[in-house]
Amino acid sequence: MAVDLKTKEHIRGIRKAGRIVAACHKALSKRIAPGVTTLEIDRFVERFMLDRGATPAQKGYKGYPFAICASVNEVVCHGFPDSEPLETGDIVTIDMVADVDGWKADSAWTYAIGRINTATEKLLLAAEQSLQDGIKQAVLGNRLGDIGYAIQARAERAGFDVVTAFVGHGIGRNMHEYPEVMHRGVPGQGIALEEGMVITIEPIITAGRADVYIAQDGWRARTRDGAWAAQFEHTVAITKEGPIVLTRWD
């Protein structure tokens, strides 16, 4: 299967969507607090996107009914928003995809609800750092295995594990495109990174074992041992100048 390489014009289109995603996450960071429900967050995100000329691409995708995925504590991804208030000490991953003029950008972020304990702080730090280490490897001359290895090495040094049941992916006109981006890997192996590739890097790091199961709703993935998990994700373009993060908050 061939990678759909993007032109500079295509990347500008994805960047437009990425800026809305980033602005929405930045706005959420000031609104998420104890007592807020993930259903309220879902409604805020959908309105935020629509007001700025974007549509929430996840809504309706394979029948998914919400604008965001909201994954609390041991839910690793694809959590349904609901009316249960978030509590102090919780963590919640908000994953969203904006579509602007047919171009899509994807980003997830794990938020602390009020004060969290030291162990959870370490989990969030390791998860965010693993994403940043993966992005640093997204350069011409490297392969996807270099990205996965950097993520895995950071997580394991911190005493955590990487969930392998879910992967990053190419993105552009479609939410999920070739190739798959694994978050474990062997340096020098995998598909070579080419100019014009646009991918998501989205490691999920868990404080326990990496084994997960899917809930009866067919969407929510949880850790089997009940350990909490954190995820940070950016949409990244591979260019001659190095990786360009199209969903940066700044």
Rank of each mutant, 00 (worst) to 15 (best):
G18K: 04
I20D: 06
H10L: 11
V162G: 00
R222A: 03
T200A: 13
L28R: 12
I201E: 00
R143V: 15
Q137H: 08
T200W: 10
A70Y: 13
I147H: 05
G102R: 09
T164C: 02
T247H: 01
Y213N: 04
E84L: 12
A105P: 07
A119L: 14
E121R: 15
A57F: 12
E195K: 07
G141V: 12
G148A: 03
A150H: 03
D4Q: 11
I214S: 11
D95N: 09
D217I: 09
F66Q: 10
P65G: 11
A158Y: 09
A54F: 06
K59H: 04
V162F: 05
R248H: 05
R220Y: 04
G89N: 06
A229N: 01
R47L: 10
A150G: 02
L86G: 00
C24W: 09
W103I: 05
T206W: 08
L246P: 00
I201C: 02
D90H: 15
R157I: 07
R12Y: 11
S29H: 13
A229P: 05
K240D: 13
F48H: 09
V100G: 02
L123A: 04
D90C: 07
A165P: 01
G141N: 11
G226C: 06
K122C: 03
C69Y: 13
G190P: 06
R31M: 14
T239A: 03
S71T: 11
P56K: 07
R220S: 15
N174L: 14
R157W: 10
V72C: 03
G159N: 06
R47N: 08
V72T: 12
D225L: 12
R154G: 00
R248Q: 10
C77H: 12
H78M: 09
G190K: 10
Y149Q: 07
N142R: 14
A23E: 15
W228Q: 08
I205M: 04
D106M: 10
N73C: 06
M197G: 01
E156G: 01
G18M: 03
M49A: 06
I91S: 03
R209V: 02
I135P: 00
P65C: 12
T164E: 05
F166H: 12
G53H: 14
I204P: 00
G208K: 10
F44P: 01
T55P: 01
A126P: 07
K26V: 04
I113Y: 06
V163T: 03
F160G: 00
L246V: 06
A119G: 09
G145W: 04
F44T: 04
E74Q: 14
D250K: 05
K8G: 08
